[in-house]
């Protein structure tokens, strides 16, 4: 066949705002998407570096099928490079070097059914960089009646992320900090596209929860946490569950201490003061906020111990005490 190009072609990946222009044989910033013969290829398609059946609470999802299990998987790589990444061994790995296992979409759906998991979660690294695999897997799972959920940092371009949202039931989107300078210097990204993704998730009508890792001395500024909470309230609503996750020393922030529990309590209080109704503190076992209480009357509705569901007292998605509607997707559980 005639080949018209005489010069090598740079392929521009349009999946995330980095829009890498990738030379022949090389990969983009995520190390995952490569230029082979002038075409963009997804190098980790159909391979996983992690697979585990987790409670959905661990993602975290607290208002989406409480107590359900999710076959949770990840392919290698990420388009962000956060200094404190909690999963850096796989997110910052070279796909050529990571120990990966083949698990094509159809096989993944079969495995979820075999494990009795009603959900599949694309998580641990970032499904944005294994976009094609996540899309095809969501379709294969839907064909078996298995729902898909995303756990992502949301650093993506609008059109592709909306296409992915249309294939899944829910997303937890992690906002690293309400601070563009922090994204630039500590994550290799930017804030604006993440906020766009949050709004897109809301507009596409999927169930949405928001998380934020509180890193001492980095992302624990009460002013910034307040700004995040007010933005979420104004743009996504007061009913969006907001999770503050406690940091443990990892990767390039091994030198930092774990977040003091008092700092987590302060973040929780700031969010409540900003009018957020369902606020949780994660990675602090036994924390008072790990159970869901009715935001109107304070009745205990969903009792948890860590990620474990102990009891659920909802009636047709309403608080049995005051009758208030509890935001979420509870299926047949109440």
């Amino acid at each position: 066949m005639e080949r018209r190009e005489i010069a090598p072609v740079l392929v521009e990946c349009t999946l995330c705002p980095k829009q890498c222009r990738i030379p022949e044989g090389r990969s983009g910033d995520c190390r995952v998407r490569i230029n082979i013969d002038g075409r963009l290829r997804a190098s980790t398609y159909g391979t996983v570096v992690a697979a585990h059946v987790d409670p959905i609470e661990k993602k975290p999802f607290f208002h989406f099928h409480p107590g359900a299990t999710a076959l949770s998987i990840a392919a290698a790589g990420c388009n962000l490079h956060c200094d404190g990444c909690q999963n850096w061994e796989i997110s910052q790995a070279n796909p050529e070097e990571a120990e990966a296992h083949p698990l094509p979409p159809e096989e993944l759906a079969r495995m979820a059914a075999r494990e009795g998991a009603p959900l599949v979660a694309f998580t641990y690294t970032d499904p944005i960089v294994y976009y094609e695999y996540a899309c095809d897997s969501a379709v294969a799972c839907a064909a078996r009646g298995i729902g898909s959920v995303l756990v992502t940092a949301g650093y993506a371009n609008d059109a592709p992320i909306r296409a992915l949202f249309r294939l899944v039931k829910a997303a937890t989107i992690d906002v690293k900090a309400f601070d563009d300078a922090f994204y630039r210097s500590h994550c290799g990204g930017g804030l604006k596209p993440v906020l766009n993704t949050l709004v897109a998730a809301r507009e596409e009508g999927i169930w949405l929860e928001v998380s934020n890792l509180v890193v001492p001395g980095m992302t624990d500024d009460p002013v910034k946490i307040g700004e995040l909470c007010r933005w979420v309230r104004q743009n996504l609503g007061e009913d969006v569950p907001l999770h503050f996750l406690r940091f443990a020393p990892h990767y390039r922030q091994e030198n930092l201490p774990a977040t003091p529990v008092a700092t987590m309590d302060r973040a929780w209080q700031i969010a409540r003061d900003a009018g957020m109704r369902y606020v949780y503190v994660g990675n602090v076992p036994g924390h008072a906020s790990e159970s869901t209480k009715c935001a109107s009357c304070g009745a205990l509705l969903i009792e948890r111990a860590g990620y474990r569901l102990l009891s659920i007292r909802l009636k047709d998605g309403r608080c049995p005490s005051c009758g208030g509607v509890i935001p979420g997707v509870f299926g047949g559980q109440g």
Binding site: V9, P23, G38, R39, A51, E97, P102, L103, E132
Partner: peptide, 26 residues
Amino acid sequence: ALPVRRAVLPASPAVLTVSKPPLRPL
């Protein structure tokens, strides 16, 4: 200087040829 081609998503799959250690079934 080089011509740029905007990739149309989705990108097609490619199994890495230089994977090490070799892929083993899950």
